[in-house]
């Protein structure tokens, strides 16, 4: 049983403050959704937790099982159990998916220890079968020339192989048609269980029809302004984000 605690987190890009005091705790087994209008800091939150060097954490804490991860490089955070599913995954020409995942597995082993190649491929193929991904996929260069749906499936495959404690899924639904969305959601639902905590970042309620969250948070202007269960997402869909803005304006007045 693990927990990811985000405490009064403030994040800037350059001089500009983006996340302005966000607090949230996620436990293994839980799926939290963060919804909010564009430009409110959702993606910044996920990249800052994952350790992107362009994002400066000006104050606050992120604790994984009680230990701060903020002093760690992105790769150390990943090995500690954080996984970021990218909204726009990078294309890596000349590096096959098989070699890439192998390097990621090798990085999780003690120095001098060699990955068992046949066991690795066996595991890779079983995960691909589970996610209904063609085996030819592994010889293609990472994300190069992939459709939006293929890129997201590649992210899910990586997540399945790396078995993180917490997955931060940044706008996983963006750019997907309904079939691709269903495949990706099936993948996440397959992995859902007592050992995985998920933070789903989304602009639209649509994704939450397929991955039903335990908790829904509304983010606005760098903070969580409202939390509830899955019904909050439906309410938000019905009333729109203006409803939140009006509520906030009323409480500030």
């Amino acid at each position: 049983m693990s927990q990811l605690e985000i405490k009064d987190l403030h994040v800037s890009i350059g001089e500009k403050a983006i996340v302005k005091g966000l607090t949230l705790t996620i436990h293994s087994g839980e799926v939290h959704a963060i919804m909010g209008p564009n430009g409110t800091g959702k993606s910044t939150l996920s990249k800052a937790i994952a350790g992107h060097p362009d994002y400066t954490i000006t104050s606050g804490e992120v604790l994984l099982d009680g230990a701060s991860i903020l002093g760690q490089e992105a790769d150390e955070r990943a090995r500690a159990g954080i996984f970021l599913a990218f909204q726009y995954p990078s294309e890596i020409p000349g590096v096959s998916i098989a070699n890439f995942l192998r390097a990621a597995q090798q990085a999780r082993m003690a120095e001098g220890e060699e990955l068992d190649a046949s066991a690795y491929y066996k595991r890779l193929y079983s995960k691909m079968d589970l996610l209904k991904i063609d085996r030819k996929f592994t010889s293609r260069s990472v994300n190069e020339g992939f459709s939006g749906g293929e890129k997201k499936r590649c992210e899910i495959l990586q997540m399945a192989m790396l078995e993180p404690k917490f997955a931060l899924m940044d706008e996983t639904d963006s750019g997907l048609d309904i079939d691709a969305l269903r495949i990706v959601a099936d993948g996440v639902n397959t992995m859902r269980g007592p050992n995985l905590g998920v933070l789903l970042i989304t602009h639209y309620q649509r994704l939450l029809d397929y991955i039903v969250p335990d908790h829904v948070h509304v983010m606005y202007d760098g903070r969580i302004v409202k939390s509830g269960d899955k019904s909050l997402a439906l309410e938000l869909e019905a009333k729109g984000y203006d409803w939140i803005k009006k509520e906030l304006a009323a409480s500030a007045a």
Binding site: A74, S90, F100, L101, L162
Partner: peptide
């Protein structure tokens, strides 16, 4: 960053 985010050192 993409590779690092998968646990691969710089």
């Amino acid at each position: 960053f993409y590779l690092q985010s998968r646990g691969i050192a710089k």
